[in-house]
C-alpha cells in the first residue's frame, strides 16, 4: 500500500514539474519558480499533508484494533 502510494505520488510530482515550465507575458511567480524556491513550499506542504494522512491511517488502524477487541 505504501509503495503504491509513493510511486503514484512521485509520478504525479514529476508530471507536475514537467508541465509547470510555462511562461507568459504577465509576471506571476516565475521568479520564484526559476530560483527553484516554490518547490520548497510545495515539498513542505506535501510533507505536512503526507504526515496528516499517515496519522489518519494510524488512527484508522487503532480504531480497528479496538473494534476487534469488542
Amino acid at each position: 500500500m505504501r509503495r503504491l502510494f509513493l510511486t503514484s505520488f512521485s509520478l504525479l510530482f514529476f508530471y507536475g514539474v514537467s508541465i509547470a515550465q510555462n511562461t507568459d507575458g504577465v509576471e506571476m511567480a516565475d521568479a520564484l519558480r526559476s530560483s527553484g524556491k516554490i518547490y520548497v513550499v510545495v515539498t513542505v506542504i506535501s510533507v505536512i499533508f503526507i504526515g496528516i494522512i499517515a496519522y489518519l491511517f494510524s488512527i484508522d488502524k487503532r480504531v480497528k484494533k479496538i473494534e476487534q477487541k469488542k
Binding site: M1, L4, F5, S8, F9, L12, F13, G16, V17, I19, A20, N22, D24, V26, M28, A29, R33, I38, Y39, V41, V42, I45, S46, F49, I50, I53, L56, F57, D60
Partner: peptide, 28 residues
C-alpha cells in the same frame, strides 16, 4: 482512502506549480 490522499497531493503539487490564467487583483 489512498485515492483520496493521492488526489489531494496531486492538487497540492499541481495547484502550486501548474500554469494558471493571469488575472488582475487575483494574481497567484
Amino acid at each position: 482512502k489512498i485515492l483520496a490522499s493521492v488526489l489531494v497531493l496531486f492538487s497540492i503539487v499541481g495547484g502550486f506549480l501548474f500554469h494558471v490564467p493571469a488575472k488582475p487583483i487575483l494574481n497567484e
